[in-house]
Design a protein around this nucleic acid. Structure first.
Length: 118
RNA sequence: CGAGCCGGCCGGGCGGCCGCGACGGGCCACGUGCCCGUCGAGGAAGGUCCGGGCUCCACAGGGCAGGGUGGUUGCUAACGGCAACCCGGGGUGACCCGCGGGACAGUGCCACAGAGAACAGACCGCCGGCGGUGACGCCGGUAAGGGUGAAACGGUGGUGUAAGAGACCACCAGCGGCCGGGGCGACCCGGUCGGCUUGGCAAACCCCACCCGGAGCAAGGUCAAGAGGGCGCCGGUCUCCGGCGCCUGCGCAGGCGUUCGAGGGCGGCCCGCCCGAGCCUGCGGGUAGGCCGCACGAGCCCGCCGGUGACGGCGGGCCUAGAUGGAUGGUCGCCACCCGGGGUACGCCGCGGGUACAGAACCCGGCAUACAGGCCGACUCGUCCG
């Protein structure tokens, strides 16, 4: 995700869930008449200055990018996801961040197909 | 051996597995795909406090204003940087510190304390006179002693005096003039004369000397697209609508203007000069992509030579990150260093924890700042031994 508009749209209109040090905003795919026009699922990250200095912010961003890469195929095409990071994330480590991300994603993405077992 | 002082350097290492970004090569099911190889953060990359390169704009001039620097001589592309030296201050010493021009060009300010703080002044004291038996009071002289202060108008000794005082004298310190000597210079050394002595702050205004165009890689260049308009062709239900091609590069409204000059440039203002037909405001709409710049440079390493040194010259070798939601991450093992507690056959063994400050974005030279831990070298002082 690159445009500021995509970020604000996803944060404002998407479903929200927080677990551990991360908060995710998920906006499901919009119905399109032609399937070929649907872009692949996109992810953006928000790491504010409250999280830490430049070194800390970039390190968390890298960890999250690698974690999110593995989970990208699980999202439907056209979906938009914004991951916000809360202060203290640097102390949790990559493994715990991945766990937080899984739990939060389970809430918002699973809720989309309610009542159905995966 | 113990204290200390200065300079230089490093700032985790090796190896699996899964990934990321560039570049080169190969393969085709040509997707901007897969495979292989190489390279991939710092000493401060960071702060953005100075200086320069580069790019665009400007480059008649004059006056005024503005900013910066401040011992000297060098180094350098340049600097507010660095080196050596000078002066002042500190330390036994190695060495360290200094925002180090001018206070007889002018203006201004010196808190508190104190009697008095800059054409000085008299609280205590000292001396004399007068009054009083006396304690003491009044008047005058004085600045040696006491007290206040960061700072009190030279210091020591003498002459002198009622007591005193550069009032006078000798020496010393300091200031100024002259002469001689040394140094490129800042300045230093010596001699002589002078009046006896004239405080500090210029990071207060100010004065002096020297320096200074403006903006910045979102600079700048290039390709493509675009709303609207014009022309041509074709089609239809033919004063209109749709499609294609080419050219231009948006439309509407208002205001000020076209030699009676809007507006712009000459860093700011004034004068003056130059360019000059567009410019300004509002509303609505479009785009917000690619490539170049962009990594061979005041470059890095080694050696020799010149120089006290900063640095320079010559020779040889090397190519060393280029992202653009912005590439270096995750995980495991071994080793190194430090800490904790445990065992020990004093050689060590295994366990747990920790390893800083910090992430390139046009590029270089500096400065100051942050930093776990460690290495190397020169020198000084003290103690002991030979």
């Amino acid at each position: 995700m690159r445009r500021g508009g995509d970020f604000s749209l996803t944060v404002r209109r998407g479903r929200r869930a927080g677990r551990g040090a991360v908060v995710v905003h998920y906006l499901g795919p919009v119905a399109a008449e032609d399937a070929r026009d649907v872009p692949p699922a996109r992810i953006g990250f928000v790491v504010s200055r409250a999280v830490g200095g430049s070194v800390v912010r970039h390190r968390i961003l890298r960890q999250l990018r690698h974690l999110a890469r593995d989970r990208l195929p699980a999202l439907p095409a056209g979906a938009q996801l914004v991951v916000r990071v809360k202060p203290g994330a640097i102390d949790r480590g990559a493994a715990e961040l991945g766990h937080d991300l899984d739990l939060a994603l389970g809430r918002v993405v699973g809720g989309e197909r309610a009542g159905r077992k995966q």
